[in-house]
Write a protein that binds this DNA or RNA. Structure first.
Length: 744
RNA sequence: GGACCCGUAGCUCAGUGGUUAGAGCAGGGGACUCAUAAUCUCUUGGUCGCAGGUUCAAACCCUGCCGGGUCUACCA
């Protein structure tokens, strides 16, 4: 039995559909890898599933008047449907709302809280309790997650900014920054109140993590083995020193903190749940358990996760499990540090051997952006294009070393040029020639020419050479090398020119076709991880012997063809071929243009997740109000006020006489405003929109009686009025009145 | 403000000290006509972001700067 290897793809957050950027980041490369391993006969389990807990889902549900369960049910279906349609060959696609996940998460929590595996002892096992002040809604009687606090953005003035981020200007905020904060639940003004949370002592675990990363436990120095973009980020966190992180939250939608533990700790557990980024990665474990149960062997998950046998002896050699996490770069810290720390403290779990994180994929030169409709949704795209075309094209553009760009001309070029012209046409010409000249039977070869031998040598070397690329996570190269075999075939076919040979030397023509057909047969195996549908069709055309499946539940019986068999000629002389068909249809210019138009004028029912391309384990979940999701629209009209409300605001004309950047502040400008009767200092969060020179000398409208506020240690006495267009750009409200003039 | 990744041909990208810097696509010339107007071949094209430095030798190592990206901090 080969060594067990567990491969995971980041759990998509069930708060919106996923787009091509997600697919390229964490799913497609994992699927290439896993299918290759299955063809090699490895014992691999490919685990994924929806990440369904957390406040973001709760907020969305509330906003849409649905239950969180409704939200996750809907997106779970859309996401899984899209991923399956793209050919992701998961052994299991689970859900973190499943009972087994709750049980597994509780068990992790309990173990760390009562019997941690490492010699780290705080007041709650390895955990410690931390008390802090959180915003509390006195009307609803609940603590408010940052997301549940709304107010006016101090940077751009958006009246509906969230406590963690302003969706309008993208600023990262905290609830305390919001002007006129209010509860999203009741509109009550939040008060500060003490609350207690469990903290994961990452600071304590840091030495263990560093040792593990250096290879103390298994001799694998991950600082050297992993990609620089991964180690770079991990190093930077380690150098800064890991800080303890709260792993519980006062919200409703999550896995409850075990009551007995809370009681023992003297903490009121009501309303406390385990934070989503603690439970989400445990989803890899619980989904594996769900898989094992579905296999009728509930203990089978231990083969992939546990480092020790039941009798306590350490697994070695072929028993020792391997773990590989495919993620996007936004998840590096969680998979390189936090989750390993959790696994260590729980004890007996395998730690990742590789975390091949990809960078981000851009679309037509710009970031994927839901709010601007600049995105291609996976489930939607696959309604118009075969999965194989997407798999291959995206596979050649994977952001393996740096951010990459997906554009539709490139997509068309890859499909038409590589798949149809180079690969499809090679297969087609070899097959149709055999049918028209040799009755559809593989001709017997004569004496091999130097060129024919060279092709057979290339076939013999291909599985190992290309396999090494898969094994080292170099998928773009693997794809290139695979298609390059078809190039070799075309050249050979062209140079030999069997349509001439057949007139002068039939046996030479037979040899040419024999060799070309062997190459087709090998390609039908080597193409399987990349374009599984086309590979299967090709094998059918060739009437090839049954092959091991690259899908789960692979039949491992010995007489099926596998990856390594692609090295040898697979079609004996006289073998009858099936009917040739076109392997890939070309994509018409009009189809591509239609797709471009679709992008330019999005009609897709957009969801709302903006930035992170792979949103698993979100530290700061990102999304935005549904009202603004469709197209960037005008801000909704605020509630009606009476004149007296307005009259309270003292607006004045003021001339900006001093403007300068504030050191160490990215967004703030320090302004001095001449009001005629006095000159006062105002800090304005416009540094990302204007340079000091651009604002100097302007006479603008300010709120002159706003309570002063300190920012960066400097007092700000008032606010500059700004107009914000739908494009998010700010413009001053200017006047030619004299400084000090009242504005009514 | 700090950290990390990146900047190579018109485009998308390989290339981490050792001949004359590469591939695919696009452009130009040619060949072929079995095949999805496909293929094959030759070819144009680069101050390797800029400026210094180390070295017999630098796209690669060091320093600074410019530009793109990401994480993170200050603001609390």
């Amino acid at each position: 039995m080969p060594r067990p290897i567990l491969v995971t793809s980041a759990l998509p957050y069930a708060n919106g559909p996923i787009h091509l950027g997600h697919l390229a980041g964490a799913y497609l490369p994992a699927d290439f890898f896993v299918r290759y391993l299955r063809l090699k006969g490895e014992d691999v389990v490919f685990v994924c599933g929806s990440d369904e807990m957390g406040v973001a889902i709760e907020v969305r549900a509330r906003k849409e008047g649905r239950t969180p369960q409704d939200v996750i049910d809907a997106f779970h279906a859309v996401i899984e449907g899209g991923l399956r349609a793209a050919g992701m060959s998961f052994d299991v696609y689970g859900r973190t709302s499943a009972p087994i996940h709750k049980a597994t998460t509780t068990e992790f929590f309990r173990t760390i809280a009562t019997d941690p595996a490492e010699a780290i002892r705080n007041d709650q096992g390895a955990f410690r309790l931390g008390t802090s002040e959180q915003l509390f809604d006195p009307e609803a009687g609940v603590f408010l997650a940052d997301r549940f606090v709304v107010g006016t953005c101090p940077v751009c003035g958006n009246p509906n900014a969230y406590g963690d981020q302003c969706e309008r200007c993208g600023s990262t905020l905290s609830p305390a920054e919001l002007i006129d904060p209010r509860s999203a639940l009741t509109s009550a003004t939040p008060i500060r109140k003490e609350t207690t949370h469990w903290m994961l002592p990452l600071g304590d675990v840091q030495p263990l993590l560093e040792g593990w990363l250096r290879g103390d436990r298994d001799g694998l120095n991950r600082f050297e083995a992993w990609k620089p973009n991964v180690t770079g980020q991990i190093r930077s966190w380690l150098e800064a020193g890991l800080r303890d992180r709260a792993i519980t939250r006062d919200i409703a939608w999550g896995i409850p903190v075990p009551e007995d533990l809370a009681e023992a700790a003297g903490v009121d557990a009501s309303g406390k749940v385990i934070y989503v980024w603690f439970d989400a990665p445990i989803g890899y474990v619980s989904n594996t358990k769900a898989w094992a149960e579905a296999q009728g062997d509930p203990e089978r998950w231990t083969r992939y996760w546990r480092t020790h046998h039941e009798d306590g002896t350490a697994k070695t050699g072929d028993d020792a499990p391997r773990l590989v996490h495919f993620i996007g770069k936004d998840n590096i810290v969680f998979h390189g540090l936090v989750f390993p720390a959790m696994l260590m403290l729980t004890g007996g779990y395998v730690l990742p051997e590789a975390v091949p994180a990809n960078e981000f994929l851009n679309l037509e030169g710009e970031k994927f952006s839901t709010s601007r409709g600049h995105a291609i949704w996976l489930h939607d795209f696959l309604e118009r294009f075969p999965a194989d075309t997407l798999r291959y094209a995206l596979g050649t553009m994977l952001p393996e070393t740096k951010d990459a760009d997906f554009n539709l001309s490139e997509f068309q070029g890859r499909v038409n040029g590589d798949l149809a012209d180079v690969l499809g046409n090679f297969v087609h010409r070899a097959l149709t020639f055999t049918h028209s000249k040799f009755g559809g039977a593989v001709p017997a070869p004569g004496e091999l020419s130097t060129e024919a031998k060279a092709v057979l040598d290339a076939i013999a070397a291909a599985p190992e050479r290309i396999g090494a690329l898969y094994a080292s996570y170099r998928f773009r190269d693997a794809l290139y090398e695979t298609i390059d075999l078809a190039r070799t075939g075309n050249k050979f076919f062209n140079d030999a020119a069997p349509w001439h040979q057949i007139k002068t030397d039939v046996q030479a023509a037979q040899t040419t076709l024999y060799v070309s057909l062997q190459l087709c047969a090998s390609l039908s195996i080597l193409l399987e991880p990349i374009v599984p549908d086309a590979a299967a069709r090709l094998r059918r055309m060739l009437n090839l012997a049954p092959m091991r499946s690259s899908m789960p539940a692979a039949n491992l019986s010995g007489d099926l063809l596998g990856w390594d068999d692609a090295a040898r000629p697979l079609l004996p002389p006289g073998h009858a071929l099936g009917a040739p068909e076109v392997l890939f249809q070309k994509l018409d210019d009009a189809v591509i243009q239609a797709e471009r138009d679709r992008l330019a004028a999005p009609t897709t029912p957009a969801d709302d997740s903006t930035a992170p391309q792979v949103q698993t384990v979100p530290d700061v979940p990102v999304y935005e109000p549904v009202a603004e999701a469709e197209t960037p629209g005008f801000a909704p009209l605020a509630d009606t006020i009476v004149y007296d409300d307005f009259a309270k605001i003292d607006l004045r004309a003021g001339k900006i006489v001093v403007a300068e950047r504030i050191p160490k502040a990215d967004k703030l400008l320090r302004l001095e405003i001449d009001l005629g009767f006095e000159t006062r200092q105002i800090l304005s969060g416009i540094a990302e929109h204007f340079t000091p020179d651009e604002v100097l000398g302007r006479t603008v409208v300010i709120v002159a009686n706003l309570a002063p506020r300190k920012m960066r240690g400097l007092e700000s006495a008032g606010m500059i009025l700004m107009a914000e267009g739908r494009d998010g750009k700010l413009r001053f409200v200017e006047t030619d009145a004299e400084p000090g003039a009242t504005v009514q």
